[in-house]
Design a protein around this nucleic acid. Structure first.
Lengths: 110, 110
DNA sequence: ATAACTTACCTCGCCTGTCAAGGTATATTT
DNA sequence: AAATATACCTTGACAGGCGAGGTAAGTTAT
């Protein structure tokens, strides 16, 4: 198990929403870009990723549609909704708060 | 459910070890000091706390002994071990790394 | 040709950490 | 006598992560 998997837990949704803020994207590509961005130090496991897509779709944060590729494997594209954008902003501000709280709690005193 | 509970997840052990770095302490007091430190914004739930104590003890990070209170409720004190100190340091450095990774992943690009 | 690999999707079932809800016992305050 | 505070604990449910498996289509190497 990766060192950081426990610490990343809880950020999966935020990471996915962040990826979708700029433009629609599909699972495989999202995963690749995450691996690339962390220099291979972290990757969302496929099972985790697709679970998250289902969760976010049910929650109304994203919607999905099949791409119209003429060749190669089919792709399911995801699009962030207005509600998803609101949620993203909320998650970011929660993270800022949580980060300070954690820093405060995990340091030794005196 | 508290806003930040999902984000704090994974830091419980680190928080407890941090508390024990300076001196031995007991569960109830540790929990109180966390509540105080966060201004009531966060508290380790008792079940979570005691589960974590068991986990940390089994892992050899802490040891415990009963206090010799002459009055009032009995207290089980916890003491951090050398292995626990090493682990604390490791967890702190992992946090620093994970923090940067998260920041990097949850921001929107361009 | 065919084996191996890549792209791209998905599900099932286990594991682990959190926590609501319950419990015990002692001492103090109302 | 009842309520509150201190202080400990367990059980069972739940949710998220993920290993292990599967499907299907296209590409590259032998």
């Amino acid at each position: 198990m990766s060192i950081t998997s426990d610490l990343i837990r809880g950020h999966t949704d935020t990471i996915i929403l962040a990826k979708l803020m700029s433009h629609d994207n599909y699972g495989y590509e999202i995963n690749k870009s995450i691996q690339q961005k962390t220099g291979g130090e972290y990757e969302l496991k496929e099972a985790t990723l697709y679970t998250a897509f289902r969760r976010l779709e049910v929650a109304g944060c994203i919607s999905s549609y099949w791409g119209d590729e003429q060749t190669g494997a089919r792709r399911r594209y995801y699009s962030i909704t207005d509600s998803g954008r609101d949620n993203y902003k909320r998650l970011i501000s929660e993270w800022k708060k949580a980060k300070e709280m954690i820093e405060n709690l995990i340091k030794t005193e005196e």
